[in-house]
């Protein structure tokens, strides 16, 4: 409602008045601007000042020559990247890992939040919550270490248990068919529990009267969850989904880098690992920046599209 009135009034304002309105607004809301100031300054200094770095994507950047002294090469790095035979493989892997994440990981916190919300016993709920939040605090380095500890064929405890049950060992870590599942599983273990926090918070904000009303109408627990809880957290889901879509090409670098090996690299190599090898390890700053820029632009487009769609479905969107 508010937004609509604001939009309407701003449309109505005559162009000649616009400047004055701006000035008077600034004056009227000066404390509001003061509140925002530290944040705005932060974005200017730490996010916009370093953005000149994006320019080196169009250069043959040499640190010794600096930004001004380096040679401009236009789109050379982009063309080299798109025409490399790695590109389709990287693109497929990045997209598929993201897709696995979106389809299998993204709904997990929502489901878990709904389950936790239905749990009756407060202590039981608390214990489960405490356990499932915990892995979030572990870094990928640690999680990779644990994964090797559990899943390796030589000494992994999971395989030893399988063998003791008379089954065959499974090559979890070196099977290219299992790799995307492995990554998704790790993400679930680490973050599915933690992700529930934001949903639980918005579920807690639901008016209890709504549940009462649903009960009056004879709705069971499933129907209550479906008709009351889910709609209440819909806008949070949509916002998270939009932001997630913008990150489609951002698959967790550290995770993949730590889990990658020669037997699975055909399905594991993604833009970020490629950039790391070429940019950071080989010092090809310009080339890797170009790849990063390509990723950013795709991400920006995706967010804009997703935001459009969300708005068409009556959601507020991100901006």
């Amino acid at each position: 409602m508010q937004i609509m009135t604001a939009q309407k009034s701003s449309k109505l304002a005559a162009a000649s008045l616009k400047r004055r309105t701006a000035q008077s607004n600034l004056k009227r809301d000066k404390y509001l601007y003061l509140l925002a100031l530290p944040g705005i300054l932060f974005f200017l200094v730490f996010k916009y000042v370093p953005m000149w770095g994006v320019l080196i994507a169009f250069q043959d950047y040499s640190p010794y020559d600096g930004l001004l002294g380096s040679q401009w090469v236009g789109f050379t790095h982009f063309i080299a990247f798109f025409s490399s035979e790695q590109f389709p493989i990287l693109f497929r892997n990045t997209l598929m890992i993201s897709l696995y994440n979106l389809v299998f990981f993204f709904p997990m916190p929502i489901l878990l939040a709904l389950l936790l919300n239905e749990g009756r016993n407060v202590l039981f709920k608390k214990v489960i919550q405490s356990i499932v939040y915990l892995p979030h605090f572990l870094s990928w380095v640690i999680i990779a270490g644990i994964s090797y500890l559990l899943l390796s064929q030589t000494s992994g405890i999971v395989n030893q248990v399988l063998v003791s049950f008379g089954m065959h060992k499974i090559d979890f870590l070196t099977n290219s068919h299992l790799f995307w599942w492995l990554l998704t599983g790790q993400s679930m273990w680490k973050d599915a529990g933690w992700g529930t926090i934001i949903f639980l918070a918005s579920i807690a904000g639901v008016d209890p009267a709504l549940y009462e009303a649903a009960k009056m109408d004879g709705a069971g627990r499933m129907r209550q969850a479906w008709h009351v809880t889910l709609p209440a957290i819909r806008s949070v889901i949509v916002i998270l989904l939009i932001l997630r879509l913008g990150q489609v090409l951002e698959v967790g670098f550290e995770q993949i880098y730590l889990m990658m090996n020669g037997a699975v690299s055909q399905v594991a190599d993604v833009f970020d690992t490629y950039v790391y090898r070429n940019g950071i390890q080989n010092g090809q700053f310009s080339f890797s920046t170009a790849v990063g820029l390509f990723k950013s632009i795709v991400g920006l487009l995706l967010v804009i599209i997703a935001n459009r769609i969300a708005k068409q479905f009556g959601e507020e969107g991100v901006y």
Binding site: I40, F43, P50, W52, V54, G246, G279, K295
Partner: peptide
Amino acid sequence: LLILILITMLFNPGFIPPYLL
């Protein structure tokens, strides 16, 4: 401002410019 902030979430200038800053 919101759009400007959104842009910062997407453009990653790598690690050299922030280091210099």
